[in-house]
């Protein structure tokens, strides 16, 4: 940030309405691409490198976080040459534990903040929450928007809040969670994405993973298209992170196809695209092992989380 406070311009919300049927039909077509052999392997390894391995439970302990970090570093040592995941995603109280466990690696630590998952608190608390995460060493901050204010039409409030959190993030990259499952329509998703991007989001993210109806292909497509339109207008890139409900490698590959066909190859990189997931990694690993060994694998031979 340059220190200049961004100002909300209601004009940005004047976009043509999102056509739901069109979006749904377009997203189904991404699932029809046939990806086999070497391209499948390449895709699977790319998926692994893009995962934000996540644990966001009330019952998280330092032990659990340490275990997750070990997994991030050693996805499946029986298969040499696998990438590591992109980041570990935890609550602010666990950032220092994760940071220490990941010392000397290139794996980032992402922390949720701003009264995650509901976001129902004051700006003061949310900023304190953000600073706590950053001070502990978080490389990335995942914030939630105030969906209540958004529905009440207080777009300027939502905008200012994101901008303020962005300022509090310092050097950490900011992911803005829209919690699309609570937004209702694709039109609202487009609106929230536009606000988040204008307010300075480095990433926009679909969901907290705490409610049903998390990341879906149509929702992600609308967000990707918002990113594309912003890029075409300003030349600035914004990242995308679908989270929640992506647990199968085939589905993850569909997402990659969508990213490629909507935004192009540049976004096929962990710097611009992430999967928020906990069980996806094992499924991808089992697929990779199956491709290498030739027979179907058993979860018994992979780590539990």
């Amino acid at each position: 940030m340059t220190g200049k406070k961004p100002v909300f311009n209601p004009q940005i919300l004047n976009h043509p309405p999102v056509e739901q049927t069109g979006v749904e039909e377009r997203s189904v077509r991404f699932t029809k691409r046939s990806i086999k052999g070497p391209s499948k392997m390449q895709g699977l390894e790319l998926v692994l490198s893009m995962i934000d391995l996540t644990t966001l439970e009330g019952k998280d302990t330092p032990g659990k976080v340490n275990q997750l970090c070990t997994k991030a570093k050693h996805l499946h040592d029986h298969i040499p040459g696998l990438p590591t995941v992109a980041a570990i995603c935890v609550y602010p109280s666990m950032v220092s534990v994760a940071k220490k466990a990941l010392e000397g690696t290139k794996i980032n630590v992402a922390s949720v903040a701003t009264a995650f998952p509901s976001g129902q608190s004051s700006l003061r608390i949310k900023l304190a929450d953000t600073r706590l995460a950053v001070e502990q060493g978080a490389d990335e901050v995942d914030m939630v928007i105030s969906r209540g204010k958004f529905h009440a039409g207080e777009y300027a409030y939502v905008f200012d809040e994101i901008a303020a959190v962005k300022a509090a993030c310092d050097k950490a990259r900011l992911k803005v969670i829209l919690e699309t499952g609570e937004l209702g329509t694709l039109d609202q998703v487009r609106k929230a994405s536009t606000i988040a991007i204008a307010a300075g989001a480095d990433f926009i993210k679909t969901s907290t993973g705490k409610i049903q109806s998390a990341a879906t292909l149509p929702v992600t497509l609308v967000m990707l298209e918002t990113i594309r339109d912003h890029f075409q207008k300003t030349g600035k890139k914004v990242g995308m992170k679908p989270a929640g409900g992506i647990s199968k490698s085939k589905l993850a590959l569909h997402y990659l196809v969508m990213v490629k066909e909507t935004l192009g190859d540049v976004w096929l990189d962990k710097h611009w695209f992430r999967f928020g997931a906990s069980s996806l990694a094992n499924d991808v690993l089992m697929q990779v092992a199956k491709e290498k060994a030739g027979n179907y694998q058993s979860p018994n031979y992979f780590s539990i989380d």
Binding site: G294, N295, Y296, Q297, S298, P299, N300, Y301
Partner: peptide
């Protein structure tokens, strides 16, 4: 073959 090699 697929049944007898399936590890699960």
């Amino acid at each position: 073959d697929w049944i007898s090699t399936h590890m699960d």
